[in-house]
Design a protein around this nucleic acid. Sequence first.
DNA 1: TTATACCACGAACTAATGTTCTATGTCAAG
DNA 2: CTTGACATAGAACATTAGTTCGTGGTATAA
Lengths: 211, 211
Amino acid sequence: MALSERQKGILKFIADFLRRHGYPPTIREIGAKVGISSTSVVNYNLGILERDGYIERDREISRGIRLAGGLASLTGRIQIPLCGRIAAGDPIPIPDDSFPTETIELTRDILKEEEGLYALEVKGDSMIDALVHDGDIVIMKHQKEAENGEMVAVWLRDKGETTLKKIYHEGERVRLQPANPLLEPIYVHPRDVEIQGKVMVVIRRLQASPS
Amino acid sequence: MALSERQKGILKFIADFLRRHGYPPTIREIGAKVGISSTSVVNYNLGILERDGYIERDREISRGIRLAGGLASLTGRIQIPLCGRIAAGDPIPIPDDSFPTETIELTRDILKEEEGLYALEVKGDSMIDALVHDGDIVIMKHQKEAENGEMVAVWLRDKGETTLKKIYHEGERVRLQPANPLLEPIYVHPRDVEIQGKVMVVIRRLQASPS
DNA sequence: TTATACCACGAACTAATGTTCTATGTCAAG
DNA sequence: CTTGACATAGAACATTAGTTCGTGGTATAA
């Protein structure tokens, strides 16, 4: 069943309004914009939109409208606390339960799981590599173990710093391979490395990076 | 001024509620959750949260609360059409107005503008570089011009392929510099290159890429 | 024509929800 | 002790906003 012009207009207005205000419009606000003088007509059309699966409504609740399905991808969102900036030498901050001041949000088509994830903004050049630059955001998964070839954040006990490298367990030693082929690998004792987490996603902003 | 436990709770509840319902809570709903029996107390605390810049309020409007600033990532979402996959040799598909089958969603703290943006998934090795790998998602901005040093997708007329390179205008020629320092730059006539768009963001999934 | 479904209007009603006001308790400074 | 800023209650009030209902127009099918 195709939507009428009016219904398309309503849908569009709801989405617009939602983006601009952060909360859904009332029936009367919709009516005013779309050119409907009667609240019942809006209500009627909202009923159709709901029946056809374009929106969801909570009855008896003001502004109880939400966009449904692919329009909102409300369900497919992942909130990741942005724990702060890191630079080599700093320990990676532990994500705490207090209210995160900032969060990064991704959709589930980029990243599946949510548990144990946290984001860091890379600061400074010391950890830089072909893969990770200043200003990048890396999304980490908290874990102590890593498979060969995984990109991990490791704490080098003897050097007292943290770095992002690919890790390879080679018997009595651990090879930490920079992603940049120009750089030489580092070999350390398993005892001297502590895996802080695994890199899941790297987000690099080339321009238009505010903040 | 630090937030009290109560205020943190309110803030957290608003964010939670917003994510679950798609619209903000009422004063009474907040009160019920946080354990405040009086609407005026909630109102009072909301006033403080607003004064300190954690939320914004629209007075006289039901559910007229929105998270501010970095917290607004909840609402400040950007939908970017995922136009498809590219590989060197293919022309970059033109974003059309038909309903995008897939979209990538980012928050505004990663990317400001929305107009003229589209996303591509990099397929195959031909365009690969230290910066862009197979499977990466690049977010492009449609434009025909580029400044020196910008990473752009260019159509090489004589070779009949598209590639991602840093561009430098050098008088009578154009230098296309791979991000990978191991690779040599390409020099071409300005006539033979057509800029398809500028790379704004690169998203690299290291693992857990479901495709 | 007549019936029926669909769409629209406007008014009245009611529930939901923000605002305001008064009162109370706490705590630190004067 | 008194004062004043701050935090909290509770209740009355005023609007906002969703719901319902009676009415009328326009098609299409019987």
